[in-house]
């Protein structure tokens, strides 16, 4: 009986995974796009896009530094667009 329940639970998890995983990928991508856009706003000056709040968003940059490398790679820039942040 216990064995049967265990097998059922495994089957349930497997089925769940089967149906859910495509959505998970899509949501993960949507979220990454959202985060990338946010990065663009905070680092827009580096890309030559004027940011009216540059002085205030500057204080966000330290918090985003770790994500910076992956972000600029995803934006199609192989090397850091910024002389100052030479992360690669």
């Amino acid at each position: 009986m216990a064995q049967k329940e265990g097998r059922l639970a495994r089957l349930k998890a497997l089925l769940e995974e089967f149906y859910v995983s495509p959505y998970r990928g899509a949501i993960a991508r949507a979220r990454r796009e959202e985060d990338d856009l946010f990065m663009l706003f905070v680092f827009s000056e580096l890309m030559g896009v004027p940011n009216p709040a540059a002085y205030y968003t500057l204080e966000l940059q330290p918090l985003l530094l770790e994500r910076f490398h992956d972000w600029h790679r995803r934006q199609g820039l192989e090397h850091s667009p910024l002389d100052g942040f030479r992360c690669c």
Binding site: R24, I27, R29, R67
Partner: peptide, 14 residues
């Protein structure tokens, strides 16, 4: 949806 627990979702960064 159980994200982050499963491998191969390209969630490592997030």
């Amino acid at each position: 949806l159980g994200g982050g627990r499963v491998k191969g979702d390209d969630l490592s960064l997030l």
